[in-house]
Every structure is written in structure tokens, then in C-alpha cells.
Design a protein around this nucleic acid. Structure first.
Lengths: 130, 130
DNA sequence: TAACGCTGTGTAATAATATAACATATTTAA
DNA sequence: TTAAATATGTTATATTATTACACAGCGTTA
């Protein structure tokens, strides 16, 4: 059984918006879109985004400063993310590859570091853009 | 034989600074440091950084908006980077792991995407901070 | 050698991304 | 039922990055 997070009003509004988009959204474009719902300030958006990232409902695409919904219902905490990013059309897809995840999960460096999270971004050209 | 890039004045100044630091530097902290050398504007810094990233002399740590020198002399083009980042002391280390690199290089998704680059960031606690 | 393309420089202005600080409200848990 | 934790709303500001314009140097080539 997984813990069901109860989202606040702002968090719900912003998660809804992100889930409706299959592509990453940027904070200020979210802000623009939710102004009609009474969310007026960047900080209100960032606070909700941070929470949603923390509970694994969305992921941040670090190289793009943008946020995408997590389609994997099992992904309750954002600790292992892999994305492919088309450098031409900027299409982003979350990747769930069992074998790859295994390799990443099992990776040990030689410095005795204790990992609890990783983020991998692949860049290239998607089928349409090749 | 690898192509030897000839760096311009600003590029050299900024690469020198980054190479002297074993930790990532942020653009505006670089700007502050190179003002005494006559580099006065953010754009001058960003232009040099972009070029240095392009030719593989430095890497950008995407999750931190910071730049670190590449210690791997073979790494002439920045196309396959792996870092470990301590979330407590923010220490960053570039990882060269042959087996991991192989897995990543060989990864194929099922969408027919053509990859030419990836960036992987591991997060956790380093030995000192555990 | 003149015209051109390419790369780099310098400067000002501004855009885009993100957080600090403060006051208050609401929910949760002891 | 009070304290702690979480969320809200607002203003201001910090941080990161780019646009736009003018021009300089260098190698090619016509």
C-alpha cells in the first residue's frame, strides 16, 4: 500500500495543468495559465512545483528548467528518472527501462558515496526529426 | 590525433579559472573573479562558457547551473557525462566508469530515437557527510 | 587586394528563472 | 486545545541567461 498524498488547492490546480500536457511546462508559463484560477505570484507556483517534485507526481527536466508529469503510478518518490530529449523539436519522453534502471541502481563508485537519487537525460533526434 | 582547439583570450582566462577549482563554479562568480582581467559583462562569460562546453573542456552541472573542468584529456567533446553530487556539501565529482559508460552508450529505446549525448547526475551523501 | 564568411569582442538592456522575508491561515497530531 | 507542520498570499529581490547592435581580426578566395 502506498501513501496517498492529499494535495492542497494550488498543488491540485498546478498538477492538473501539468498532467494535461504531455510535454514539460515551464514555471512562468504555468503561472500565466493559472492566473485565471487565482494564482498570481511565481512563488505560489514554485512552492507547488517543489512539493509535487518531492512526492514524485512530477519531475523536473534539469537541462530545460521545465516540469513534466510522471506517468508511472508506482513512482511515488522522484529518485530515479530517465528522459530522452529531442534537441530539434524538444520532445521529452520519460524512459522506464528495467535493465538500465538495474545498472543505475546498482552503480557503486569507488569513493564510498551513498546514493539515493539519480537523473539521466539522453539527448538526440527523435524519429520525426532525423 | 585530436584537433587542438586554439582558445581566445577570454576563453583562456575563464578556462584557467575553472581548471584551478576542483569544484563547479557559477557564471556570476566567474564574472566576479575575472573582472580584474577586464571581463566586465555576463555575456562575455557565457560566450566563453558555451564554447568551452562545446569543445569539451568543461561540463555544465545542469542541476546546479555550474561549470566544472573536464579532467579527462580524452574527452574532447562533451557527449557523455556522469557526475556524483553530494547533497550536503555539494561536492561534485566526475565519474568515469567503463561498464556504466558501456551500458549508457548501448542503450536503445523503443521509439527509434537517435542519441548523440547524455548527462547523468547521481545524488547522495559523500563519505564525509554520511 | 578587396570582398566575404567566420569567430570573437564590448556594451547596454532586458528576459527568464528562482528565492527571501513577512504576515497569516489551515490542518494534523500530541 | 495547544503546538507543530504545512499551506497561502504578497512584495520585493536575487540569480541565471539572452537579445540586439556595433565592430575587430583573420583566413580564404576570387
Amino acid at each position: 500500500m502506498q501513501k496517498q498524498e492529499i494535495l492542497s488547492k494550488n498543488q491540485k490546480i498546478i498538477l492538473d495543468l501539468i498532467e494535461k500536457s504531455d510535454q514539460p511546462l515551464k514555471a512562468y508559463s504555468i503561472l500565466f495559465d493559472v492566473k485565471k484560477k487565482g494564482i498570481n505570484a511565481p512563488l505560489q507556483v514554485y512552492r507547488a512545483l517543489n512539493k509535487l517534485v518531492k512526492i514524485g507526481k512530477i519531475h523536473k527536466i534539469e537541462s530545460r528548467n521545465a516540469f513534466i508529469a510522471c506517468k508511472n503510478s508506482k513512482c511515488q518518490i522522484a529518485k530515479a528518472t530517465v528522459f530522452s530529449i529531442c534537441e530539434s523539436c524538444e520532445d521529452v519522453t520519460e524512459i522506464h527501462d528495467h535493465k538500465l534502471s538495474e545498472h543505475l541502481r546498482d552503480f557503486k563508485d569507488n569513493k564510498g558515496m551513498k546514493y539515493n537519487k539519480y537523473n539521466l537525460e539522453f539527448f538526440g533526434l527523435c524519429k520525426k526529426c532525423i
